[in-house]
Design a protein around this nucleic acid. Structure first.
Lengths: 398, 398
DNA sequence: GCACTCGCGGAGAGCGCTCTCCATCCGTCG
DNA sequence: CGACGGATGGAGAGCGCTCTCCGCGAGTGC
């Protein structure tokens, strides 16, 4: 019968108000942006808050503010997949979404990465206890790139009291879930990292009038902000460095050509080479995985045993190339100079450490986050994009 | 004046009910677990839902169900930190979390891993555009381990329509934020991965009566479920393999001894070696980073130039050790056999690929998630823990 | 000295949803 | 043939919070 703080559940605004002898509204004012409350009362309220151990209920707040104060970090995958069936399997088993088909790399097509796919990832060979063997998620994190994106996003968000919800969207079903998630108001906007061009997700999000910012420019224009890297410039840096070093028989291992970054790095490289009198550059297409880099290097070596310089479109492939090169008795950089791209952790896992083109992933991810938060603050602000400049990091391999 | 679906904002249950000519309650019944609604009406409601494009508002639902249908994935860091000042630096720079003090390896103490810390991570040397140079986040993702944890968690959660909120908790402030987050009802429970023993977070969560499951047993008992690996057994496997191979002058690079996993792997290794007539095994403490593995290997080689076998407590260190070994002219496994631990992606980034002890991280993470969901379903269920058995994966290095 | 403004706190109306009663209506059994 | 039970749908009360009104008291200008 005393003023017990309603023994059930967590204390509410009401409880605090009672304890402080004021109204709910006043407590709310104090708890949030202190609009205009007498300092004395403020203090009383604050004391009451700590006495009762009050924590505002976010659901209730979100209900009225219509803000979740959360954002989604979405890793979006290939657009190519069997979605003809328009599966209406209701709830339940969505595990079948696995059947995703990657288009198998253009000219490289030695069927390599298909059966032996596990080469790219170390784990989960015959594991089946729920851990994602060949799952999209596992593939994603096999590349150090995504960890860096997460790092950039989280480091930007944390000081602002926000935390990202991690989502993956490699199937149309998953994509719809992402849109639904946003529409349900569980997140105010999305940070989308696409692993493939033609990803329909940005379009879906834009159509639904939801806020998003992309990492990398979408293949077809979408009215959404993005951050990107000047890939061509980076490739130019690599080419010039190899040339400056005196390499004359230079080849390149490109990324998947259906990925804008892969394409741009190749054309940037070829253009620069051509401009310096090397109109023809041997190229084998890889898939940004270490194993594909190995295959590509083997092939390159078979066809051009005398090459003295290689530019791989990312570090993982460069690492694989180095292994193969060494196995074939080539010293690095003595016999063959190798330049990678990204400056990821793989660059240092290599011996000698990789000379590479640095992509400031963390900074780009942070900027992407900033753009999203800006947009949420001013929904009618302009759609802006930021292009980052890469820089060459010279280490031992070239 | 017509039955326009209230042109403002998203359609609500009310709108759907009107469109279907039923009551809100009925629509709710259909949308959720269909308790008992006439099939005909069900169909009508479903049609109305798709016509109106209705999506339930999660905040409203959470408000009454008191469930967020979300869980937090928390990477928790060192307990050791300068929190005397009780830093009230408000928001902003949390980057100082770097000051985190790892005890510098027992006898190793050559001050190595201190200045050259960047060796462990590839990125962000002088980068400052917000991306986390030496941030805790960056450190965390520099190890392939966390990507695997995320993979396991996400792959288990996704088919269940859930997505994890990613949080980090390396400072007491961050820890409080995690607890607050849970108390606000933004997540129903937490999955906690501690990078250090003595982590206070599990205790804080348990004290607050919140649900959680840990990856790895906490140093001091906490009434919380966890999953863990039989580290000793794994180390035994490594020792026996090295011995079986005929190695007789074996040394080991241990993990940080203040981390239970590091400690257990060392003692398991030593015990087995002792049981086989090798009471003394040279050991240098590493920090689970590639660079610390290199340093340790250098030291080991200096003191025991004739060694013919090395067990590194994780793959990253084994990778570093291999580099150093090769630089010193030792062939692997010819002159020196190397065994790693984890079977992470680093094991395949190595040449020859690493023989290693497999920790089924994805499976363990999935199990951890299952335990949490179980607990949320039955809050008064038992506190259970699951210990996984490691297995030896023989590849080229030993 | 009176109306007017302004600062400040309280009352109360929802936000959209779930869920517990009830009211109905049907079929069926005594 | 009347009553009763089960199946079904509707009404309505909140969940905890924010925020718009209002009221009140005190300062201010003419």
């Amino acid at each position: 019968m005393t003023d017990d703080p309603r023994s059930a559940g967590a204390p509410t605004l009401e409880d605090v108000a009672r304890a402080a002898g004021v109204s709910r509204a006043t407590v709310s004012r104090v708890v949030n942006g202190v609009r205009n409350v007498d300092p004395v009362i403020q203090e009383a309220v604050r004391r009451a808050v700590s006495v009762t151990g009050y924590t505002p209920n976010r659901a209730a707040r979100s209900l009225v503010t219509r803000r979740a104060d959360a954002i989604a970090l979405v890793v979006s995958g290939a657009g190519v997949e069997p979605e003809t069936a328009r599966a209406d399997s209701g709830t339940g088993a969505s595990a079948q979404g696995e059947g995703e088909e990657h288009r198998d790399g253009g000219g490289t097509g030695d069927g390599a990465g298909t059966g032996t796919r596990s080469g790219g990832r170390a784990f989960g060979k015959d594991e089946d206890s729920g851990g994602g063997s060949g799952s999209f998620t596992a593939q994603v994190f096999a590349d150090p790139f995504f960890g860096r994106v997460v790092t950039g996003v989280v480091d930007y968000l944390r000081p602002r009291g926000m935390h990202p919800v991690l989502m993956f969207a490699e199937t149309s079903r998953a994509r719809e879930e992402v849109v639904a998630y946003l529409r349900q108001g569980r997140a105010d906007g999305a940070l989308v990292v696409s692993t493939h061009a033609e990803d329909p997700l940005p379009g879906l999000i834009a159509d639904a009038g939801l806020a998003a910012v992309l990492y990398a420019r979408p293949a077809r224009p979408v009215p959404v902000s993005y951050v990107d890297l000047a890939h061509q410039d980076g490739a130019r840096l690599a080419a010039e460095h190899l040339l400056d070093r005196g390499c004359r028989r230079i080849a390149t291992i490109s990324g998947p050509l259906d990925v804008p970054a892969g394409h741009a790095r190749l054309t940037g490289f070829q253009d620069t080479m051509a401009r310096h009198g090397h109109p023809y550059v041997p190229v084998v297409e890889g898939r940004f995985t270490q194993e594909s880099g190995e295959r590509a290097m083997e092939r390159l070596l078979a066809e051009h045993p005398d090459l003295d310089g290689v530019f791989a479109a990312n570090d993982l492939m460069a690492l694989g190339a180095c292994h193969v090169l060494r196995e074939h008795g080539r010293s690095i950089p003595g016999d063959v100079a190798v330049v990678g791209f990204d400056d990821s952790s793989a660059a240092l896992a290599c011996r000698p450490p990789l000379t590479t083109v640095r992509q400031p992933v963390e900074g780009m991810a942070a900027e992407m986050t900033r753009l999203l938060l800006d947009r949420l603050a001013r929904p009618d602000g302009p759609v802006t994009s930021v292009i980052f400049e890469p820089e060459l990091v010279v280490r031992g391999s070239a």
